[in-house]
């Protein structure tokens, strides 16, 4: 691996790890707060999948960096300006509709990204993707079912679901935009060219929203910046909580 490709792969792997840990953390906030016990289990389960992915990505990032950093250094010792997750992942927990709509957007996205990543020339990334796709298929079944139920449930659930779709839509465009780092990796068959996936994502998401009697928003409004560390104000608070114990006792083993 050339040095350029190696450092691009490190950056890319870190981004994927950031997406996973930030979303996993958000989902874990639901534990003990679900609408019924089965949902507490499901949330814990999905959160665990994402924390597991974060460990695999950060573990690989640490290996690529080979500068003595560990998976925990990636998660706990970087500030929000250094985090590179998509903004969608850091948006607050919100109500149940908000979390499920976000999850649907993310699940459809990963159900398209991961099969491509499985073909990566980078064996480690391909292996992580192969494990993760199985989880994502299950996650998608759940988020799709919930969006259908909420959209086509009661007047209140419909309104809440539509509000969530409208509030989150502007954060979905960023998922399909690439910078130089990601383009180079896509050209080298290491990373995924997400720009090609937007149409299929839109087709699938639109179809589910329509079946759920929800409206697909117009595309006018879009916010971006996660991949360059230009975050919403939410991430700082998330990291404050997540990193507090780790940083309060520097250099400890847990």
């Amino acid at each position: 691996m050339s040095n350029d490709i190696k450092s691009a792969t490190l950056e890319y792997t870190t981004r994927l790890g950031d997406d996973s840990i930030v979303l996993g953390h958000r989902i874990s906030e639901w534990v003990s707060r679900g609408p019924f016990l089965e949902e507490d289990i499901a949330y814990a389960n999905v959160a665990l999948d994402y924390v597991g992915r974060a460990r695999m990505f950060f573990g690989y990032a640490a290996e690529l960096a080979s500068d003595g950093r560990t998976e925990d250094d990636f998660a706990y010792m970087r500030d929000d300006r250094q985090y590179r997750n998509l903004l969608l992942m850091e948006m607050p927990r919100g109500d149940f509709a908000y979390s499920q709509v976000r999850q649907l957007f993310v699940d459809v996205y990963y159900s398209l990204v991961l099969p491509e990543l499985m073909d990566s020339k980078d064996d480690t990334l391909a292996a992580i993707a192969a494990k993760a796709i199985k989880e994502t298929r299950y996650h998608l079944r759940r988020s799709r079912d919930w969006v259908l139920r909420l959209g086509d449930g009661t007047e209140e659930s419909h309104q809440r679901a539509q509000k969530a779709v409208d509030s989150l839509w502007g954060y979905t465009h960023e998922m399909f935009e690439m910078d130089e780092t990601e383009s180079v990796l896509a050209d080298n068959d290491i990373g995924v060219d997400t720009t090609k996936l937007r149409d299929e994502w839109l087709r699938q998401v639109s179809s589910i929203l329509t079946e759920a009697t929800l409206e697909v928003p117009e595309d006018g409004w879009a916010v971006r910046g996660g991949r360059i560390g230009y975050h919403t104000e939410n991430l700082g608070h998330l990291l404050t909580e997540m990193q507090f114990v780790h940083r309060s006792y520097p250099g400890c083993q847990w």
């Binding site: 707060r33 679900g34 609408p35 019924f36 949902e39 109500d95 149940f96 139920r149 909420l150 449930g153 009661t154 209140e156 659930s157 809440r160």
Partner: peptide, 9 residues
């Protein structure tokens, strides 16, 4: 807070 979800279901 989950009441409306159970009702929707």
């Amino acid at each position: 807070e989950g009441a409306w979800v159970r009702e929707a279901l």
